[in-house]
């Protein structure tokens, strides 16, 4: 045991540094109020955890995390943030106590359970002696490709991955249903007998609230007006192709 800890000493220092960065970034996400900063810090968090994945021998996972977590999801969050506010409102202290208590209790319960977990990097832990190591043996014999992760992903657990592909497909479908591929879902106005009933707004858009939402309403309704005027001129077929923004 002494020798193994000696042999991996530089990795421990790297691990500790990455863990410290992760904790600092996570805490600053809690403290910050600027959404732009929060979203960028989330990208930083993903990138640092990708670095830690490399240190933990999970090169495939690190690759994916760097591309997806730090790349695509940050872009998506920025795109969504541009459509919403740039700052979040402060939360009163009275509303923070209950979540803090829940989190502390749950965290203490999990800390209590740490004692039953195998040591970090233990080769004889239950997780590392079962089917996972079996896959390494079998891949070299049965599939003859070097990357065990690809072999398990596509062949041994191909069923799972098929499920994941379907989940991704349906998530894409859900986004297209909610927003539309050209960004025009949910912006069509009903026109019973040629009359437009805009603005097409759900619950909160009634007269009492409008004064409190001046700036938002002017933006939204001008966009809606533009859409409805331009669609009124076009034929019925073309109406669904209208992009709403232009």
């Amino acid at each position: 045991m002494m020798l193994s800890s000696y042999a991996v000493a530089p990795t421990i220092i790297l691990d500790l540094a990455l863990m410290a960065i992760l904790i600092i970034v996570a805490f600053s996400i809690v403290r910050m109020r600027s959404l732009f900063a929060i979203v960028m810090l989330q990208g930083v968090y993903s990138l640092v955890s990708a670095a830690w994945f490399v240190s933990l021998d999970a090169v495939d996972v690190a690759f994916t995390e760097a591309a997806v977590g730090a790349g695509v999801s940050t872009v998506l969050m920025l795109a969504a943030m541009l459509l919403a506010n740039r700052k979040s409102d402060p939360v009163p202290i009275s509303k923070q106590i209950a979540p803090l208590l829940v989190v502390i209790v749950a965290g203490l319960a999990m800390f209590y359970a740490i004692g039953d977990m195998p040591a970090f990097g233990d080769v004889n832990s239950p997780a590392n002696t079962g089917v996972g190591m079996d896959y390494i043996e079998r891949t070299t014999k049965e599939i003859h490709i070097p990357n065990v992760v690809t072999a398990v992903l596509a062949s041994y657990r191909g069923y799972d991955t098929f499920g994941e592909a379907v989940v991704i497909f349906s998530a894409g479908l859900g986004v297209l249903l909610l927003l539309g591929l050209n960004g025009n879902a949910g912006r069509w106005t009903a026109s019973p007998s040629g009359q437009h009933t805009y603005p097409p707004m759900a619950p909160s858009a009634n007269s009492r609230l409008r004064s409190s939402r001046d700036n938002i309403k002017s933006v939204t309704s001008s966009a809606v007006k533009k859409t409805s005027v331009s669609t009124a001129r076009k034929s019925k077929k073309k109406r669904f192709k209208d992009k709403g923004d232009n």
């Binding site: 193994s4 042999a7 991996v8 994945f53 933990l56 021998d57 999970a58 090169v59 996972v61 977990m117 195998p118 970090f120 990097g121 233990d122 080769v123 832990s125 997780a127 590392n128 996972g132 390494i136 891949t139 070299t140 070097p146 990357n147 065990v148 992760v149």
Partner: peptide, 14 residues
């Protein structure tokens, strides 16, 4: 991922 780490191990690319 930390559960799957084996100290002194290599990435699972044979």
């Amino acid at each position: 991922i930390t559960i799957g780490k084996v100290s002194g191990g290599q990435p699972p690319i044979v």
